[in-house]
Design a binder for these strands. Structure first.
Lengths: 138, 138
DNA sequence: ATAAATCCTACTAACTTGATAGAATTTATG
DNA sequence: CATAAATTCTATCAAGTTAGTAGGATTTAT
């Protein structure tokens, strides 16, 4: 399951990607359009900014816009930003690897082996879905 | 991420699958071998029993054994039993479907469409890994 | 100067998770 | 038949996470 944060982030990015580029959107307008609590969305947009997916203009008449080609923003990136590891256990993770305390020998752990296979397939599936695809679907 | 419950369940099932069938294992012995807190494992084995993956013999000299062909127990089944939906949102789930309150039209929701594609790939990956494969790996 | 906007930090209620505890029940065995 | 060994069942709890709220500081167009 993805968190609300991730879900809202994706919806906000789709919203931005549907517009001509260069156009600014305020938190309020995205909030209203995508049905996301405004103050919560503020935090999410800031995180997306820190991750260089969006940029902002401060002050009156300011707002947010996509700062990256929507073909190059995909669900794997967004998922990792808010929810962390794609893998089902830290020991099977690429970006969030952690050693399993209770594992005597990770090399020979068949569970780790299995979960790494799952991770690869899930990662490919997530990576294949870009914001561009979502914004232009149908 | 999978919960500890799911992780322990898989480890316990692998342990049972590695033995000749018909042999009984007590909670204590599995707990010791697979490094799982005993009282916690008790609950997990009961859940696995209710799901017909294992059977038990009560009383002294009792214990648990695999009651299903380990080729037919896979990670998707176990995941769903303890952690629920494979899909990343309830609206994209097959077994745990729930309508999205904030979605005006699920038919045309591109996020749902994307997450269903991800769900299918993840599900196939999970389903492909059986307890038999894990128990006989390497 | 003012209003409109982003930016930043702290807080909190509700829920979930990972256990632990204790007792009831069942059954093999001496 | 008494006992010990095992499953079965239910309740409880501490710690962490999530989803959101609150309030203000800062920036900038007009």
């Amino acid at each position: 399951m993805i968190s609300q944060r991730t879900k809202y982030a994706i919806k906000a990015l789709i919203h931005l990607a549907k517009q001509e580029k260069g156009v600014l959107f305020t938190t309020s307008s995205i909030s209203g359009n995508a049905n996301i609590p405004k103050k919560f969305l503020e935090q999410i947009l800031l995180d997306l900014k820190r991750a260089s997916m969006v940029s902002s203009v401060q002050g009156a008449k300011g707002g947010y816009y996509l700062s990256k080609d929507p073909r190059k923003i995909n669900l794997a990136d967004i998922y990792r930003l808010f929810d962390g590891a794609v893998a089902l256990l830290p020991c099977a993770s690429e970006k969030f690897y952690e050693h399993c305390k209770d594992c005597p020998d990770e090399e020979s752990c068949s569970l780790k082996w299995g979960l790494m296979k799952v991770r690869e397939k899930t990662f490919n599936a997530l990576k294949d879905i870009s914001i561009y695809k979502l914004a232009n679907h149908k």
